[in-house]
Nucleic acid binder design. Structure first.
Length: 616
RNA sequence: GCCCCCGUAGCUCAGUGGAUAGAGCAACCGCCUUCUAAGCGGUUUGUCGCAGGUUCGAUUCCUGUCGGGGGCGCCA
């Protein structure tokens, strides 16, 4: 908003200087960045343009800055930009007229809760974002919670930045999966009252599933049937937990459906036809040195023993992924004919471009244990995308452009100042839904379950989102549960509740607000902060740094509290000022609600803490 | 061995190549006759791990190094 205006404003000044030969044409290439200032002594906004363009201009930064200021002073007076000053090594500091800044309040109110912060793109991406996607063999854990929170907010941010986004969950229900077979066996054992097999699944949820299945099927039912049914039950529970966590997907995509439709076989045939997959009994492995330099290429002959031939087994089908940057060729089909997980991935990645229709980009959010998987996925997509005669490197580059794998780092849970195990004392997996319930019960012991879960969800989401996804984080369970009052999400939500309260109290304030009266420094600071939301969203969409939005929400709340403290809104003896401040309250509420909407946390209209009885 | 991430105040962490590096917690001192004190103001706190390099300018980018966390299956 204001930044966009100042960028354009400066751009025009520079263009004039170029047109009149006072600056060389080369400086037109220098981007103009508007930054905020650390101190109001440096004005409202600043640009380093003079410094970064000094070389292209062939003069020192202050000389460039002087030209810009001259052009500004020679031009027609601008109502918003009061003054441009040269400071320090060559900063251009903008001083704005607060009464003009206040006019932006009107723009904010016009956009409203649902639209404020959103941008339009001339050429939006159509993006499929896959996230969470855990195996249907257990509940969503607190570990997956981070990917869930991050992925959902990334989707919201990309959408708000003007892209078309499709939210997708991939169900790993492939019939060949060892893990899922073991899960089915474990449930089957429970059904029959037998001990779970070696390495099988334990925990209360396995019993729950077995109990539920007992109602509909006999203990003698085939493993395949049991497996399919418990996958469905588990997936339903995951879906339910994620909904409580504030996440709904556009598509829950079944891996097995690709096999059932014969699409996997079809894609493998295509790859074989293209020559990027074959049955030659050799595997290439590449040893990379520092910086991805190829140090050694090893060809391993794959010996087939006579038993294989005798049992009529086929040769192994290899994806020659080393041609596309992978460190070893990957098996697509084992010699016994069973397809690997990566074979499904081939079909799946081709299919994903249908959601949204004609998708231009795929984003896959994965946990830290999957970072070794990135190269494989790019190789899969490169093999799919490669056109006849196209060099491997070009296909790989295309794959890397179209598929972004975003890895979030480990989250460690801390209790009593020590790392807490991911399993609880009773041996059960720590599920996301347990975390939500625990936080909610601690924060609001007397509230009903719906309200407790709303609070638990808000706190958990905010905690997950406060840190950059690319940094390992500690999730302090004590802070999130016991001392939940210290949680910044309450600070931010309280600002919203406070605004609602002020608005309710101001019903007698009517009349047209004169926004030009909003010139108190704390009013100007609040308006500037609200106006920053679209900018923060655009930045976050660009580098996936969605944790900024939590910082933004807290900063905006702080700006409101600071304003509230000094500027009384409801003053019947000053109706014009009151109306203007009321409008500002509405605008701040729009900003907070928009930020909360992106973050997936609620905007409570009332917050009141019962007096504590502790210590009596 | 290779790959990913981290190292900033006592603790947990923000920080867009820029000016005097910030916030919360913790400690201390103030502010409710007044729109919610889950708030506001103030005091105190630094070898931005270390060494080079690029740059007019580096906490930020690059290289190396030390320390910590995680990952490298014909499992998914």
């Amino acid at each position: 908003m204001i930044r966009d205006f100042l960028r354009e404003f400066t751009h025009v000044l520079v263009q004039e200087l170029i047109a009149s030969d006072r600056l060389p044409a080369a400086v037109a290439e220098i981007p103009i960045e508007i930054t905020d200032t650390k101190s109001i002594e440096h004005g409202d906004f600043a640009t380093n343009f003079a410094m970064i363009s000094a070389k292209a201009a062939g003069m020192n930064p202050r000389a460039v800055a002087t030209l810009v200021v001259d052009a500004f002073q020679a031009g027609p007076a601008n109502s918003l930009v009061h003054q441009i000053e040269i400071a320090g090594p060559g900063f251009l500091n903008f001083r704005l007229d607060p009464a003009q800044v206040a006019r932006y309040v009107g723009d904010i109110l016009e956009a409203g809760d649902a639209k404020f912060g959103n941008s339009h793109l001339a050429h939006p991406d159509r993006i499929n974002v896959e996230f969470v996607s855990v195996n249907p063999n257990g509940p969503i854990t607190i570990g997956s919670g981070r990917g869930a929170a991050f992925g959902s907010v990334l989707c919201n941010v990309l959408e708000a930045a003007g892209n078309v986004v499709h939210r997708e969950y991939y169900i790993n229900d492939g019939v060949n999966s060892e893990q899922m077979r073991l899960f089915g066996l474990s449930v089957q054992a429970k059904l029959r009252g037998e001990p779970v097999p070696e390495g099988g699944y334990k925990g209360d949820y396995v019993d729950d599933i077995a109990q539920e299945l007992k109602l509909t099927i006999s203990p003698d039912e085939d493993l395949a049937v049991v497996k399919k049914l418990c996958e469905k039950l588990m997936t339903d529970r995951q879906r339910e937990a994620l909904e409580i966590f504030g996440i709904t997907f556009d598509t829950w995509f079944s891996e097995q459906s690709l096999h059932d439709a014969g699409i996997v076989d079809m894609r493998l045939d295509e790859l074989a036809l293209k020559g990027v997959a074959d049955e030659n009994p050799v595997r290439t492995k590449v040893k990379f040195g520092k910086g991805g330099v190829v140090e050694e290429v090893i060809q391993e002959a794959q010996v087939s023993d006579e038993d294989d031939v005798a049992t009529g087994e086929r040769a192994t089908l290899w994806l020659r992924s080393t041609n596309f940057g992978d460190d070893q060729d990957r098996v697509l089909r084992r010699k016994d004919g069973r397809l690997t997980y990566i074979a499904s991935d081939v079909a799946y990645h081709a299919d994903k471009f249908n959601r949204p229709p004609n998708a231009t980009k795929l984003i896959t959010v994965l946990g830290p244990d999957h970072h070794g998987y990135i190269g494989r996925l790019h190789a899969v997509l490169a093999a799919l995308l490669q056109q006849p005669g196209q060099p491997d490197a070009d296909a790989l580059r295309m794959a890397r452009e179209q598929l972004q794998v975003v890895i979030f780092q480990l989250v460690r849970f801390m209790k009593d100042g020590k790392p807490a195990p991911m399993r609880k004392r009773d041996g059960n997996i720590y599920a996301l839904i347990d975390l939500i319930d625990e936080i909610g019960k601690q924060a609001a012991p007397d509230a009903d379950q719906t309200e407790q879960r709303r609070i638990g969800r808000d706190v958990a989401r905010f905690f997950y989102l406060m840190r950059s996804h690319e940094t390992a984080m500690d999730f302090d369970l004590d802070l999130a549960t016991r001392q939940s009052d210290d949680n910044p999400v309450f600070y931010a939500q309280y600002a919203h509740a406070r605004i609602c309260s002020v608005i309710a109290r101001a019903s007698e304030i009517t009349g047209e607000p004169n926004l030009a009266l909003l010139v108190h420094p704390r009013e100007t600071a609040l308006i500037k902060k609200i106006c920053d939301l679209p900018y923060e969203i655009q930045r976050s969409a660009k580098d996936h740094g969605v944790n900024r939005l939590t910082t933004y929400a807290v900063d905006l709340a702080g700006a409101f509290h600071y304003f509230y403290d000094a500027c009384r809104v409801v003053q019947p003896e000053e109706p014009e000022l009151s109306a203007a401040r009321l409008a500002l309250c509405h605008a701040a509420r729009v900003g907070l609600r928009a930020a909360f909407r992106i973050l997936g946390v609620s905007a409570p209209e009332r917050m009141s803490r019962e007096p504590s009885v502790v210590g009596l």
